[in-house]
Design a protein around this nucleic acid. Structure first.
Ligand SMILES: [Mn+2]
Ligand SMILES: [Mn+2]
Ligand SMILES: [Mn+2]
Ligand SMILES: [Mn+2]
Lengths: 227, 227
DNA sequence: TAATAAATTTAGATTTGTCTAAAAAATATT
DNA sequence: AATATTTTTTAGACAAATCTAAATTTATTA
């Protein structure tokens, strides 16, 4: 009886970047548009159309002209494998190599395409099987499963309820620079002392330090879990 | 007064692989032939010619039709940076992730193309600034300098003189498999008990274990330094 | 519903890296 | 020196990924 051998299909870095981008976009809207993809990948709609046709023949996504695109389960599997690598490497860079959490994204963007399966598993073990990356995003395990943290937007946290920052809503240098300056990071415990309805700014207190005010925009970029 | 900004030219993975291959080949013969390059890069002579023309315009090498090729100092600098990354990653894989020394070459072949300067320097520090990779090859420092170990071929070691294995002459799986079976690695201390002129095999003794014989081919693939 | 605007796809080029087959140059052999 | 062999280069083509400009489809608005 002969076992069937699946040739472990491999994909170009470009193809992987498309798959990952579709994966992230379809978290929000179920189906992803050509223009949105072109925008996040910094390319042109025409190029996206070409690539979608190709990825369709590789059975990574379902696509009909003018109807947008969704990943197949094969495509999701690939996306999760890339996300897993991306976040494991970010964890490595911050926790082993002492990178700042705002410096790791670009590097991980390259490292996520290293193909060795064994490398990923050994790296995971070396890091102690972390479940969240330095930005608070969950790291898929080797089967593609990831924990969903029940997190709420800081703006929705009730006054005087202690909570812990567990994720950020963006990874822009600008946001991370601001957080560094205010000394807020993943794991920071805080509570809201007052909400101002005029500009929706909020006054928060971290540990036993004096309270200070943060803007609506900043509060919306922070996710917390109550503790 | 305006400082001159050098755009940090960047090169494709293919270009980097060419530069590294030329670097290694020109260690032996001063100038490198089109055919030799085609052979080590598993490509065709015609492709090599095309690439040499391109790399010449990028000033990484000097090349005249039919005359072979040499790296410029720019080219050497790039080659050393790639070799540095390759060997640092190999060290990481073996000493931090518990890879076998015969499993790391392929993975390092990919990792050596990750571009972040900061990553290399932080990795180097994390590893404790190692000077030799798991195969005994020297790791260039951040300025491209590397230690030259005064090493001799095992076949030339005098009888009864204790020496330490410090490098292997090839990284073929076959060789590394044999070494693993015989329990010989970088750092193994041994001495020659007898040389047989019939087939140039030699009898060696490792530590206090019983002596055993190794072939001429194996002896020639091992480099030692006397201790 | 008809006209207009926006999103998407096609057509046709371009760049990079590769290939085969044929021509040209350098070496080796008689 | 003439011939044969090997090495290297050129010529022409191809696949991947991209682009601009034009055509087409879908969505919006009057
Ligand atoms: Mn990427
Ligand atoms: Mn992250
Ligand atoms: Mn390589
Ligand atoms: Mn090595």
């Amino acid at each position: 009886m002969s076992k069937k051998y699946f040739k472990p299909m491999s994909f170009s870095i470009t193809e992987e970047n498309y798959i990952k981008a579709i994966f992230h976009l379809q978290q929000e809207e179920g189906t992803v548009s050509t223009n949105d993809l072109a925008s996040v990948l910094s390319t042109r709609a025409a190029s996206v159309t070409d690539m979608l046709k190709k990825l369709k023949t590789k059975k990574l996504l379902s696509y009909e002209k003018y109807k947008g695109v969704r990943l197949t389960s094969e495509g999701k599997k690939l996306a999760l494998a890339i996300v897993r690598k991306h976040r494991l490497w970010e964890y490595f860079l911050v926790n082993k190599l002492q990178f700042g959490w705002d410096e790791v994204h670009e590097v991980a963007e390259e490292l996520e395409h290293i193909t060795s399966r064994k490398l990923v598993e050994k790296l995971d073990a070396f890091l102690g099987f972390p479940r969240f990356d330095p930005h608070g995003d969950p790291i898929p395990d080797s089967h593609g499963k990831m924990l969903v943290q029940q997190q709420i937007n800081l703006i929705d946290l009730p006054v005087n309820k202690t909570a812990e920052v567990c994720a950020v809503g963006s990874q822009s240098t600008e946001l991370l620079e601001l957080l560094r300056h205010k000394n807020i990071g993943i794991g920071t415990k805080l509570e809201i002392k007052k909400k101002f309805s005029f500009d929706h700014s909020i006054e928060i207190r971290v540990r036993n330090q004096p309270a200070f005010t943060i803007s609506q925009q900043l509060a919306q970029a922070l996710f917390v879990k109550t503790v």
